[in-house]
């Protein structure tokens, strides 16, 4: 099995784990980590699947770099909001949806 395919398979395992964490976990930090796991899964697939005959394709690597910048920004925003929520309510979980 080529290294590229191995990367892609690891990514295919990570992505659903991240999605499950994002949906099931209630603790906000765990959900943020789960989002990062999901993102890493997609990045591994993007780089791994495009790699043919062990020659690296530069285009998906540039895409993943961009994707990492986006993921860092999203993580920072999520952490800032989480801190603010903790300061206001003292909890690290989202309150239940109020039915209006």
């Amino acid at each position: 099995m080529s290294t590229g395919l191995l990367f892609a398979l690891v990514g295919a395992a990570l992505f659903p784990m991240g999605v499950a964490g994002l949906l099931v976990q209630r603790h906000l930090l765990r959900r943020i980590l789960a989002f990062n796991l999901m993102g890493s899964g997609a990045f591994l697939i993007l780089v791994g699947l495009a790699q043919r005959q062990d020659v690296a394709d530069p285009v998906p690597q540039a895409m993943v770099l961009t994707g990492i910048v986006v993921a860092v920004a999203a993580t920072a925003l999520a952490l800032a909001l989480t801190r603010r929520l903790y300061a206001l309510t003292g909890r690290l979980e989202l309150p239940d949806v109020e039915h209006d």
């Binding site: 994002l22 949906l23 993102g39 697939i45 699947l49």
Partner: peptide
């Protein structure tokens, strides 16, 4: 984020294909 994550995985699979 979940929505764009699913979208990005789709893009990855399309680029791979």
């Amino acid at each position: 984020l979940l929505g764009s994550g699913a979208y990005l995985l789709g893009v990855a699979l399309i680029y791979g294909s």
